[in-house]
Design a protein around this nucleic acid. Structure first.
Lengths: 203, 203
DNA sequence: GTGCAACTTTACACACACTGCAATTTTGCA
DNA sequence: TGCAAAATTGCAGTGTGTGTAAAGTTGCAC
């Protein structure tokens, strides 16, 4: 087998097995939580469903909640990220913030299918939404650094608040997308959110 | 003893003892966490410090983290809240949102001193910030309902997003206040946040 | 394919958070 | 003083999450 046929990453067996197991654990968690509710499902039950030892579960996820959300350490290294940091794609801050959020939401780290199920469950379990928010908050530092790179030293506003805004836009867009039953494009929703927000603030 | 002398709440002994114990628990938690870090402090240790049984601790707080943050079920029934819902104080949505946030931040449910210490600790322990965020998220529904009451049926934007914005403003103001070392008025900080945000969005 | 080094899974033991329950003590009030 | 409501407490139990060391897999060189 060739190392890299066309553009496939050509991951080794080890890496592929790891991903498969990770997804199997997420799927098992989704099945059980959808049926019985978050609190009624134990990690032990999930592991039985997935045919894995309980200790292994915690090699993949820090907590039960993380398994539902499929939270993975987020590298934040996509092409869109780089483009934003260097002033693209349009050079207009707001438009580029929108593009960044849209790019992230369109290319989730675990597939749309699983992401949709995760959000469906999160909508019913406040704790999960909170955990998701916390996860995003963890990355605020990275986002702020990104914004700082773009704006440079003489920024008109603090990179902190731009980073926080980025996070807020992502979250609000998520919520709107979910409220719409998971239909529509990310672009469409984020545009609507920005419009609303702007009109509230300039009212 | 008269029921209500002048304007004092005239709480019974029972209620006063309860508050004192609650504050004693918060203070004990702050002391220990400041010294040893959140994870190194057990509930048992906190209770020993406060001279209370471990079971009692959980009669006061849902979790260890809540004791640090002093989270109390938030009634959301202040005069400012009522005024906002009925269209006041200025009739201008944005200005009134600011007034509401400011009123909340100026009259914290546990005293500025303790609030400041709680935030100092939260800044060093990401988990606490996350929990705080989660707590705010829990109240988003109440806020949305409040906004709905004010805007009525023919609202120009969804009460959901106004509620989320309210939460975001509160959080961002908190952060800015903390970044300033806890100095300055709530009004001052929220105004700055709104100005930044507006300029980002209309850029 | 043999063998070795690196990585993964697993079992076991353990600390700790948190809950339900029933007994006990404290408080408010007549 | 006595009684009812409320608060505190001990205790037993469930479940999450971690450290550790042994056992099993995989990648790779020879």
């Amino acid at each position: 087998m060739q190392k890299s046929l066309v553009d496939a990453p050509a991951l080794g067996l080890r890496e592929r097995k790891k991903r498969a197991r990770r997804e199997a654990l997420i799927d098992a968690t989704h099945r059980l939580v959808a049926e019985h509710g978050l609190d009624a499902v134990t990690v032990e039950a999930i592991c039985e469903e997935a045919g894995v030892s309980a200790r292994t579960f915690f090699n993949y996820f820090e907590s039960k909640d993380d398994a539902v959300l499929g939270h993975t350490p987020w590298p934040l290294d996509s092409a869109a990220t780089e483009e934003f940091a260097t002033g693209g794609p349009t050079g207009h801050l707001l438009a580029d913030l929108q593009a960044l959020v849209s790019a992230f939401l369109s290319d989730p780290p675990m597939g749309r299918q699983r992401l949709a199920r995760a959000f469906e469950l999160a909508a019913q379990e406040p704790r999960l939404l909170a955990r998701h928010l916390a996860w995003m908050e963890q990355h605020k530092g990275q986002l702020s650094a990104l914004v700082e790179r773009r704006l440079g030293e003489n920024a008109p506003y603090s990179s902190e608040i731009v980073g926080a805004t980025l996070l807020f836009l992502t979250h609000a867009t998520f919520l709107r997308w979910d409220a719409a039953g998971g239909t529509g494009s990310a672009d469409e929703h984020i545009t609507a959110v920005v419009t609303d927000l702007r009109s509230i603030l300039t009212d």
